[in-house]
Amino acid sequence: MTYHETSDSILTVENLSVDYDGKKIIQNINFDEKDITRPNKIQGQSIAFVGRSGRGKSTLFRCLSGLEKPKTGKVLLPDMHKHQGEAYPPMKEVGEGDVGFVDQKYTLFRHKTVYQALQFAMRKQKLEKSEKHDKIMVHLRDWGLETVKDQYPNELSGGQRQRTAILEQVLSHTNYIIMDEPFSGLDVGNINNVKSAFKLINESHELNTVIFCTHDIELAVALAESLYVLGYPTLENGRLEPIGTLIKKYDLKSMGLAWHDQLTNRHYDVVEQVKQSILES
């Protein structure tokens, strides 16, 4: 699995912290993801966050997606809008709508059918109406949503709602897509759908990036190139400080574990290590 790490960042977070009503939820979050290239391949990246419930994964994601202003710190992304077509645009602070976001509850427009929702997601693209239609229909077929295309969210099952929510973001053409627990409550087939969505997103543009969190550590190790553990840090007296921060990073690509079709024993070793560090934070 040869790859090359460029010196260009795709996502930089500096000293991020968030308060709710004066209570610190997360603090001191710093990381920098560089673009990596692979020979003869378009390779966007997947970044996983894992950690116990309530450690601030959703809170961090809301900041990364520009939906919430952090108390301190910055989230920086390449400015793809102003510098369209450039290989590595200069970085800018994230704004609303720069990043697609699929929340834990797979929220949709309650007054739009699946088809209408996807049409809406594509509204800014310069395509003919019939081209859009064809594109939507192809995806609906691939994702097993064709039969429910004229149904409203209240008439869909949880899995169907979730796939629609992800598809909306895929079709809306943002380079960055954040998914909050995209695998929770899905059956085996649906999990494969979401996995192939990751692949589809990653392979359609060099800078396309999927950021996700999950409680399924094996999936996280299988899908991500970088994996971060978000948890409570241990204080000197041995207790945990109840403010979320990054505890550990696993650079799965440099460990030679990224882009495998099958998990090996080395993957499972890492899964165990990750679980251990989640438990300790």
């Binding site: 809301r62 939906l67 709508g97 929340d103 309650r110 997601a121 809306s172 943002t174």
Partner: peptide, 25 residues
């Protein structure tokens, strides 16, 4: 809030959010 955020994450301006989520929705 999730409904508002959902619209915002689909590149809706604040006025579009008002139109789609509050008025039409």
């Amino acid at each position: 809030q999730q409904e508002l955020d959902h619209a915002r994450s689909l590149q809706c301006s604040r006025w579009e959010v008002l139109w789609e989520v509050v008025i039409k929705g």
